[in-house]
């Protein structure tokens, strides 16, 4: 069947030019689901086959050259868990859906309330009182129907964490409290998957990437036993500018991990302070 799909893709493809005037072969947005229906396969599979044959689904055209078609296919074959669907998580969903991560595994037991509206892009007047996961699934599907979404309407804890995050290529910590971050880190290490972790208070925040063998969060927060669950955000809140910047950096780390490219924030902490326009990368190891 793959041969037939390739033949059909080639027949419907169109030559186009990138803004720099170089050529590519495009598959239109509408043709992807049409082919998926006629061959009775997922639209994601159609996109992967197209990319592996060097054809570019038009929705990914502006990812190209930074990514190769093979890179884009790798992203579509990947699974990323997003834990927490508030300010960080909502923005991470939006960006990873547009980037074209093939499977998004969403974990949050919370429902939207009015105080979320300042920063949580999935919260609207319409979604008040609804599960954050429900709004996330709807938004992701509106953006990119090729993405498989797994929805878990439950809070991560030390009993369910292993099952909730298994088979993730990368896990993104978008939680809103320090205690659960340590539970997630522990589960990530057990699962053997890298964790990207960001946290925000007011106009400040920081982000790091933790592979299973790395010391991780204790370098930032000290021993977990000494900690209150909430940090400075309890008195400063979380501002949408800081939340969005940190979420965007998280997604860049996710993509670099999957494609094994660029520099990661392993054993490093990128701190961002939008009050005084400070960005700095700290070495967490002495």
């Amino acid at each position: 069947m793959k041969t037939q799909i390739i033949k059909k893709l080639k027949a419907i493809s169109r030559p186009k030019k990138y803004p720099d005037d170089t050529d590519y072969t495009s598959i239109s947005l509408e043709d992807i689901p049409r082919l998926a229906t006629s061959f009775k396969v997922d639209s994601r599979k159609i996109e992967i086959i197209a990319l592996e044959e060097g054809m570019v689904p038009e929705r990914y055209a502006r990812n190209m050259k930074t990514f190769s078609p093979e890179d884009q296919a790798s992203l579509l074959k990947s699974q990323v868990s997003i834990v927490g669907l508030g300010g960080l998580g909502g923005t991470v969903c939006e960006i990873l859906a547009r980037t074209g991560i093939g499977t998004l595994n969403l974990i949050d037991g919370d429902r939207f309330e009015a105080s979320n509206l300042n920063r949580q892009f999935l919260s609207t007047r319409e979604t008040m009182g609804k599960y954050k996961t429900e709004a996330a699934v709807k938004r992701i599907k509106e953006i990119n129907a090729s993405i498989t979404v797994r929805r878990h309407d439950e809070y991560l804890d030390d009993k369910n964490s292993d099952a909730l995050i298994r088979r993730s290529d990368v896990i993104v910590d978008c939680l809103d409290n320090i205690k659960t971050r340590f539970i997630l880190e522990n589960a990530s290490k057990k699962s053997g998957s890298p964790l990207v972790s960001a946290a925000v208070a007011g106009l400040s925040g920081h982000i790091t990437t933790i592979f299973p063998e790395d010391p991780g969060l204790k370098l930032i927060y000290g021993p977990p036993d000494d900690l209150k669950s909430k940090g400075a955000e309890a008195s400063l809140g979380c501002l949408p500018s800081a939340v969005s910047v940190l979420a965007a950096v998280e997604t860049a780390e996710v993509v670099k991990i999957i494609l094994n490219r660029g520099s990661l924030l392993r054993n490093k902490l990128l701190i961002i302070d939008l009050l005084d326009n400070i960005t700095e990368i700290l070495d967490l190891l002495p």
């Binding site: 927490g84 508030g86 300010g87 960080l88 998580g89 978008c174 939680l175 809103d176 409290n177 320090i178 971050r181 960001a198 946290a199 925000v200 208070a201 400040s204 925040g205 920081h206 927060y221 900690l227 209150k228 669950s229 909430k230 940090g231 400075a232 955000e233 309890a234 400063l236 809140g237 979380c238 939340v243 940190l246 701190i271 700095e280 700290l282």
Partner: peptide
């Protein structure tokens, strides 16, 4: 010298 309090929000 830079000093951060514990920060955990999102």
């Amino acid at each position: 010298l830079g000093i951060f309090p514990p920060v955990g929000g999102g």
